[in-house]
Structures are given as C-alpha cells and as structure tokens.
Design a binder for these strands. Sequence first.
RNA 1: GGCGCGUUCGUCUAGCGGUUAGGACACCGCCCUCUCAAGGCGGAGAUCACGGGUUCGAAUCCCGUACGCGCUACCA
Length: 484
Amino acid sequence: MPTTVRVRFAPSPTGALHIGGARTAIYNWAFARAVGGTFILRIDDTDADRSTAENTAQILRSLSWLGIDWDEGPEVGGPYAPYFQTGRSESYRRALETMKANGTAYPCFCSSEELVAKREAARSGDGPTGYDRTCRGIHSATAAARIEAGEPHVWRLAVPDDRGDIFVDDIVRDETVFPASAMDDFVLVRTDGTPTYNFATVVDDADMGITHVIRGDDHLSNTPRQILVFEALGHATPRFAHLSMIWGADGKKLSKRHGATSVEAFRDEGYLPEAIFNYVALLGWSLDGETTIVSRETLAREFSLDRISKNPAIFDFEKLDWMNGVYIREMSPAELAKRMLPWLIDTGLTTAEDYTSRPEWYHSLAPLIAERAKRMTDIAPALAFLFADEVALDPASAEKALASDEARQALAAAANALGTLEMWDHDGIETALRELAPGLGVKPKVVFQAVRVAVTGSIVSPPLFESLALLDQQDAVGRMLAAL
RNA sequence: GGCGCGUUCGUCUAGCGGUUAGGACACCGCCCUCUCAAGGCGGAGAUCACGGGUUCGAAUCCCGUACGCGCUACCA
C-alpha cells in the first residue's frame, strides 16, 4: 500500500457504546492492526445538546474493556489533537473560508419554516426534494451586506453544476452510483456557527489523513454529499466500507426489549470481553466460513475488508451464550478463579480477603464450574452451597432423592461412613460411598443422589466427590444428618 | 414520493459458472456418565426471496418484481 492506512472510529457520545458501534470499532481496529496502519479514536460531539462527558467516558471504558486500544485519540493524544470535534472549531472555520473563497459555499437566509413548507410541497409530488437553491442566486455583495447587518444565516454547499453522477468506491458493496440530480445544497454550518455532521466529519477526516472510512450502513446515503465536500476542499477522497446493521430477533432495531444492547450491559450480564469481541466480529465477517473461535490476536492478523458480508445480521443471544461458555472453559483454573471472584463478592458469598488467604481452594473451584457455566452470572448460584454453613433443601429435589425409606437409610449410612472416613479426598469419598450400595441393596446412584441433595440442596450440582472434598468433613456430615 | 442498499438451513455464515450447496449455534437421537453439564458420534433442517433472461450449464452474471432497511434535518 503506497500510503499508510489511517482509520478512525468516531462515535458521538449521545449514548453508551452499543453492540453495533462495538463492531464498527473492532473492524477499524483490526484493519489497522492487520495492515500496520494507525487507528484513531475521535469523539464526534457536534451535537452539543445530547453529548455528555459521562457518555464519552463510558465509551472509552467499553472499548478498553473489549481490548481495543487506539494510537491517537482521547487520553493518548496525537499529532492531530484535539480528538473532540467541539475542540476543532478553528479547523471548521478555516475549511469554510476555503470553500467561500473557491465558491463552493454560500450563505442561505431561508427560515426553517420556509424550508419545511417547501419540503412538504416537494414531497407530495415526485422528483427530488432537496433545497431549491433560492439563496444561491443572491449576489455576493448583497449577501455580504445582509450578513453584515446581522441577518441569521447558514452556509450551504454549492453542488457544482457540472458535477456528474457521484461514484462511491465502497469496498463492501462495490461501486455504487448516486445521480447528480439527487444532490442538494445541504447545510454545512448552522445559524449558530457550529458545523453539521456531514461537514465536520469530512473536515476532520481530511485533516487527519483518513484513508479508509469504515462505518455503519446508515451513512452510505450521506457519502456522496461528503465526497462533494472533500472535492470542495481540494482533498483526495478516502475509500469507504459500509457495514450493514445488526438487528434483534424480530428483524427490528436491537433494543433493550431484546436484552442487552450496550457493551456495559453485556458485561453486567456476565459476558466475557473476549466472547463479545469474537461473537460480534463474526457477525458480518468470516475468516474462512469454518472457524468460529477467533481471538483478538487472530483478527488483528487476519482481518480483511473484502470478507465483510453485505447483508444485515440478527443478533443471536444463544450463540453468544455458547461462545461465552467456550471462553470460560478455555481459561486456566487460576485465571477463572480470579475472574469469577468479583461475581462471588458481589453476591455476598465471600470477600477478597478470603480469596487471598486460600487461593488454591478457589483455584480448585474452577474445574467444578467451568464446563457448566455459560455466563459469569451462573457461577455464584451454582457454588453458593460451598460457602454457606447450611443449605436449604430444594423441595422437589428432596422429594425425588430423600423421601423414600431406602434413600433415608442410604443417607444415614453415608453420614456414618463419611463421618469416620480418614482420607477426606475425592477418591476416598467415592470409594466409601460406592461400597455402601451393595450392603443397602440399592444402586450407587441412590446413595449419591441422597448425599447430593443433603449437601448441596439440589439434585443438580457440580460433581459430588469433588464438591464434598472441598467442604469441611464435619460440615458435610452435619448437613447429611440435618437432612435425615 | 425520490435516491440508495440488502435477500443461501430458525439464526450467523462458506460459496465468487460445473459442489451430494460446506461449517457453527439451536433442535433431535445414541455414546460417555454420580446429577447437570462438557465431550464424542449421528440425524433432521436451504426448491439459494420470486419472475424472466444470458449460458451446454447459474446460488453465483444481467433485467424486472416483492419484501425489509437506510438516507431524503440547521441528528449523527
């Protein structure tokens, strides 16, 4: 590649980072990493009313949580600082001067009411509905006088009369053509002097030397307008890659009704950043059509824009759950123990001090839960019995495994055998319990299930012998006697 | 209304003129097994939105139609 790649993710801080934005960020990041380019984070906060510092902070937090780092942007700085549009007004002012000077921008004095009325009228007919260019005919001296007199005005782009159809070089959709007739003289600078999105984003992309614009599909129709601005500024047009949307199961916009939408909400629901990263990356991109587990490192190495799919995707929470489980199982016991700790603490099962005092015990918890947890939120409930002094028996479980006479005899025998057991470990416990069955005339399973319910409270639990071994012997036997 | 984009198993996708249309999740069955899982094996599931072309041959190329979505703002 002749010039080095520079891409940017430019969220507007009008809300949290949601899953679609996360994917856009991931693709920009991965593309930059894969081709040795530069990834820039820019905050597009031209909408002063809806942008907040808290949203900005949350977006940065979410990106970091996902493992996305940026080469230029907030907190890290860079040669084109500031990376907030509200701090770049001088740049927009200069760009407007350039356009005034070369005749590609002109003042418009039409009121909003007039414009709305015209638009309504135009839309009832057929044909384009763009601005009718009323003010384009005003002589420059007259316009200057009106501005001097303090008349409110906006600045509009003057679409060149001789500009033919506009071709958008889109890597995802191939070349798409927008008829010149559909281009209207849109607003560049508002009455209050602030730039509109279509102006500010182009000025910044030009200033920052952006070579590839990778963003949501909703901007595709804005692209020809932006190309006109690049041209008016005398700047080369970047290449584009427009990503299709991510929808909820009903084909509608992903909303809270479907479950989590913001990255932080997914985190709170027990999803791992590597799982979210992997799942979202594969919603619209594929390595080879076969591989489903793709690490950050792999994506940063293998990502390519030409394998982005064109069609919109429906977010499948079940597949995400599966993938999250894959990542949970992949962790080493020590790693899982460390990462499940906050969840154990939050649910009041333990404290950081207890973990520090006996890390090995916590490490040995990991294998018990790893292959039966889909989300981090599944862990605390499943392990709670290991932390309590006594457990409440689930009635349905007790009915199944403790109600019969043979079950009660089995439990009594088990309590007796385990109470005097000398080797309180997995093998010792298993042997002791298995040996009871023949004498009682029942299957080993009857013994196991009775003990399981008495000790864990439920007929469904982590593996019995490991669980017992992790409990204090007298505590375990006490629970069995209590259940009789 | 105008302009643009999209359409392969329920879902995510592979496919880029000749394949029994492949994989993954979910689903079903069997195996393993101290419960639940995890894992292994197997199964069912796609007339490639529809209709016309082009071609010896089309999911793949072209043109329509339908449906969905986006833009059409002094939102981004």
